[in-house]
Amino acid sequence: MIHIGLAALLVFSPVIDQDSVRSAALDAGYQAEYVGAAGPIARAIHAAYDIPASVTVAQSILESNWGRSQLSVKELNYFGFKCVTPTSPGPIAVRCARYPTTECVPSPCHPVDAFFRVYASIPDSFRDYGRLLTTSSNYAAALPVRDDPDAFIRAVARKYATDPEYANKVIRLMDLYDLRRFDT
Rank of each mutant, 00 (worst) to 15 (best):
M1W: 09
H3F: 13
L6A: 12
A7C: 12
A8Y: 09
L9N: 07
L9Y: 03
L10W: 05
L10F: 10
F12E: 04
P14C: 11
P14T: 13
V15M: 05
V15D: 10
I16P: 02
Q18W: 06
S20H: 07
V21L: 13
A25P: 00
L26C: 02
D27E: 15
Y30T: 15
Y30D: 12
Y30I: 15
Q31R: 15
A32T: 12
E33V: 15
A37I: 13
A37K: 14
G39L: 14
P40A: 15
I41T: 11
R43L: 14
I45S: 02
I45N: 00
I45G: 02
H46W: 10
A47M: 11
A47Q: 12
A47E: 13
A48R: 11
Y49T: 07
Y49M: 11
I51D: 03
I51W: 00
A53M: 12
A53R: 02
V55F: 00
V55M: 06
V57N: 01
V57H: 01
A58T: 15
A58Q: 05
A58L: 10
A58H: 06
S60P: 09
S60Q: 04
L62I: 15
L62M: 08
S64M: 10
S64Q: 09
W66M: 05
W66C: 03
S69R: 03
Q70C: 07
L71G: 01
V73G: 00
K74A: 09
K74Q: 13
L76R: 11
L76G: 01
Y78F: 15
F79I: 10
F79Q: 06
F79A: 05
F81T: 02
F81K: 05
F81A: 09
K82M: 13
K82P: 06
V84N: 04
V84I: 15
P86R: 09
T87M: 06
S88L: 14
P91F: 13
P91H: 08
V94D: 05
R95F: 09
C96S: 03
A97D: 05
A97C: 09
A97S: 14
R98M: 13
Y99N: 12
P100T: 14
P100G: 14
T101L: 08
T102Y: 08
P106F: 11
P106K: 07
P106W: 05
P106E: 11
S107I: 13
P108A: 10
H110C: 10
P111W: 04
D113M: 15
F115R: 00
F116D: 01
R117G: 04
V118I: 07
V118K: 04
A120Y: 04
D124S: 12
S125H: 03
S125N: 01
F126S: 01
D128K: 00
Y129S: 04
G130R: 00
T135G: 07
S137Y: 06
Y139W: 03
A140D: 00
A141G: 02
A142P: 02
A142L: 04
L143Y: 00
L143N: 00
P144T: 10
P144F: 01
R146C: 03
R146N: 12
D147H: 13
D148E: 06
D148S: 07
P149Q: 05
A151N: 01
F152M: 02
F152I: 08
I153L: 05
A155I: 08
V156P: 00
V156R: 02
A157E: 02
A157C: 09
D163V: 13
D163E: 06
A167Q: 03
A167H: 02
K169N: 10
I171S: 04
I171A: 08
I171V: 12
R172L: 06
R181K: 09
R181D: 04
T184K: 06
